[in-house]
């Protein structure tokens, strides 16, 4: 297992290097002179040259890349062109709210999806199954901004139970995480149901019954443990997407997260911020992939040993 883990982590480094080259190249592939871009449209030629020297853009490319990589490793990405604050600070402030919201949404959505999926699968073709799947399909089909607005109208405006927007207390999490997780829960429910039904047909489930394992354990131990293997992959993918920050949910609830930062930075062509965001999103996916692989190996002994 340890050997497997070390191997997986070692495999990440080349991927990270390739991504860093792309991110570095991103600024240089843009049309126009980056130095002029930074200096601003009103700057004189002298100012531009100063900026060029200041940013090290007059150095050979590989020196520039080396410096970029060195800085990136230390979390140093320069300053935002819009706010003139360090990029690391801009992103750092936005990352945690998004991470918290994502984790809360993923936890409830995964649990709910699993429960609905298993309940539907074990009562396949009966009314519980139909209700579960109608809920799941509605969850996928329902637009999240609409759900968010409806909830604000009901719980904040009419009932006054929850704050309409913002970030801080646990009450602030309720509506955004429900809105964000609904689609995930729906997808998880459908996916769990089909994975579960497939595994329930396996010979070893019949073996479990033949040795007198009670129904409860047949479902939660023998079947679900095997169905988890595809489900883990699904959870990882969903988690990665949500971590990018949900533009819609963050806008509706004025959540100070990455999604809105991304929109702002693209609108203002704030390249240093965009650069750091791309690197961050790639890193997130790589780490999630690693976690998925580790969980996968824990769930599936065949992978652990080969």
């Amino acid at each position: 297992m340890l050997k497997y883990l070390v191997g997986r982590i070692a495999g990440i480094l080349p991927v990270l290097l390739v991504i860093s080259v792309f991110v570095f190249g991103f600024v240089h592939l843009l049309p126009g002179d980056p130095a002029r871009l930074v200096a601003g449209p009103d700057a004189t030629q002298r100012d531009v040259e100063l900026v060029r020297q200041d940013l090290g853009l007059d150095q050979p490319l590989w020196v520039q890349y080396g410096r970029f990589l060195g800085n990136a490793v230390q979390g140093e990405f320069g300053r935002s062109m819009k706010s003139k604050r360090p990029v690391s600070q801009e992103i750092g402030e936005r990352f945690m709210p998004t991470l918290y919201l994502t984790v809360v949404a993923m936890v409830w959505a995964t649990l709910a999806g699993l429960l609905i999926g298993v309940a539907s699968a074990t009562r396949r073709g009966r009314w519980q199954d139909h209700v579960g799947m109608v809920v799941a399909v509605s969850g996928i089909a329902f637009p999240s901004f609409w759900l968010g607005l409806l909830m604000i109208d009901l719980f904040s405006v009419k009932l006054g139970w929850l704050p309409t927007s913002g970030y801080g207390t646990w009450q602030h999490y309720v509506m955004p995480s429900l809105t964000l997780g609904l689609g995930v829960a729906a997808v998880m429910a459908r996916f769990t149901r089909s994975a579960f039904i497939e595994i329930a047909r396996e010979d070893y489930v019949r073996t479990a019954r033949a040795k007198g394992v009670p129904a409860r354990l047949v479902v939660w131990k023998h079947t679900l443990r095997n169905a988890l293997i595809p489900i883990i992959t699904m959870v990882g993918l969903q988690f990665g997407f949500l971590l990018g920050g949900s533009i819609v949910v963050e806008t509706v609830f004025s959540w100070p997260g990455l999604g809105r930062l991304l929109v702002d930075s693209v609108n203002y062509r704030d390249y240093t911020v965009i650069q750091a965001e791309i690197l961050l999103f790639s890193l997130e996916f790589i780490i999630i992939n690693l976690l998925v692989d580790v969980l996968y190996a824990l769930a599936n002994p065949e992978i652990r040993y080969s």
């Binding site: 396996e202 010979d203 070893y204 019949r206 073996t207 479990a208 019954r209 033949a210 040795k211 007198g212 394992v213 009670p214 129904a215 023998h222 443990r225 095997n226 769930a299 599936n300 002994p301 065949e302």
Partner: peptide
């Protein structure tokens, strides 16, 4: 369930798929 595996037990055709792979 109290009788299955206890009073009557069963062996199946496919040994390759009749054991649970994760335990």
């Amino acid at each position: 369930t109290d009788m299955r595996g206890n009073d009557i037990a069963m062996v199946f055709q496919e040994p390759m798929t009749s054991l649970n792979p994760v335990f």
